[in-house]
Design a protein around this nucleic acid. Structure first.
Lengths: 234, 234
DNA sequence: CCACGTACGTTACTAGCGGTAACCGCAGTC
DNA sequence: GACTGCGGTTACCGCTAGTAACGTACGTGG
């Protein structure tokens, strides 16, 4: 890869214009102030990530915020800390949307289709956020354990969505014995189905969204088992 | 000398002990020789990746092979080239296994379960290879296009499996109009289901493999639509 | 008043990364 | 003998994440 021009360092003395004078009266808004600062930094980070993708550098983020790296590290510990904080808002929002769709009125098929629609339109309307959430660009291990744990620190959104959907399935359906396990398996399975099909669809756009939703719902409705064989009539 | 610590370079003169003398007779095995060298390097890389995970450094791989970085770059271009070469063998093997399962005798349900079994036992028997294949640890863009392409250079194995399965579905089932699109959607969807459920199962081990296979097959067989409601016990 | 704690901010560094330029030496071939 | 190509090296580049040390404004408490 050709060497990139070094990213611009923050311009000196432009971040602190006319700020301090506003809150002279208040005293112990220290905590709220740092909180506000935190969200300011997060918004800057979000701008950069949405512009440059998940591989945005801490330098670039700091520059966007008008400051330098050490402050970012004071606030978020390390890069994965920043990314975790950044991801939280979006994952929470997405999960809320999905839960709303899962609890929407209508029969079961309607709810399933509504959920698929919700997920797909979310990733469609903001692919870069989706990409950032799903492909965290190397979350640096971080756990003390070296070895074959596998998957713990990876793609947490997929896991969370799977757990969430499993809960909903468990609470809405009567699955007989082993209901808990079955529901969780289905939760992760269905989420994975949404994920892979959605990722592929977003890249190739082979059909409108409704058709994708219908086709996936057909799959979940067992059409795979009832479709006629093709080798026989030939 | 500047005070920079140098990372350990490979030990001098241990890679070429008693090698040259063997093939004095042959002449134009240059191509086969470089081919052999390539696979030697790939095996060294594999050892390191299986030991250190996907974030293994080129320096470490070169050291393991008893050489230095530039040779790796001569052979594979860049890191993603090496990783692609490294992944190819395993993906080919896995895809062949899956295809065999998809074409196995028995009825449709048997074939589906056989395929699930094949995938799950593959990732179970070698989780680190699986992890390397699925989470390529930041394939560095590489494409000229900057922007929102999304997903093209990401997780190629998932895509390939989806395409492959879509082909099989299309050639075995009669899906009426739009058969091509339906088959591909299903291919990617089913693969995603396997992927997410398998990843979760591998981490938590909530049930034996057979049960997971059966539960997923049940999902594909439409049990989601036929399971009784739980909130309204008629 | 002065000292303290605390936030914000900087400069200047470190080790390590992927990747490359320039060079050496050895084989075989025209 | 000159040319070419491959295996191999040293030494570098620009970049990254992360840190140490220092400075500056502020409000509080002895």
């Amino acid at each position: 890869m050709p060497p990139r021009l070094r990213d611009r360092q923050p311009i000196r003395g432009e971040a602190e214009t006319g700020r301090r004078a506003v809150e002279t009266g208040h005293r112990q808004d220290q905590r709220t102030a740092t909180e506000r600062r935190r969200t300011e930094l997060l918004e800057a980070a979000e701008r950069v990530v949405l512009r440059d993708g998940p591989e945005a550098s801490m330098n670039a983020i700091a520059a966007e915020a008008g400051i330098t790296k050490p402050i970012l590290y004071r606030h978020f510990g390390d890069k994965s800390g920043l990314y975790r904080a950044l991801a939280k808002r979006h994952t929470d929002a997405l999960l809320a949307t999905l839960r709303a769709a899962l609890d929407s009125p209508g029969d079961r098929r309607d709810r399933v289709e509504a959920t698929l629609h919700a997920y797909l339109s979310a990733i469609e309307s903001n692919p870069q956020v989706y990409r950032f959430l799903m492909h965290p660009a190397e979350a640096p291990t971080g756990d003390g354990e070296k070895g074959f744990d596998l998957g713990r620190h990876q793609v947490p959104l997929l896991r969370r969505m799977g757990e969430e959907l499993g809960d909903v399935v468990a609470e809405q359906l009567d699955l007989g014995p082993d209901a808990g396990t079955v529901a969780r398996v289905w939760g992760h399975g269905i989420v994975g189905m949404m994920y892979a099909a959605g990722d592929w669809w977003l890249g190739e756009r082979p059909c409108p969204r409704d058709e994708l939703v219908r086709t996936l719902a057909d799959l979940l409705w067992g059409r795979l088992s009832t479709a006629p064989d093709r080798t026989a009539p030939q």
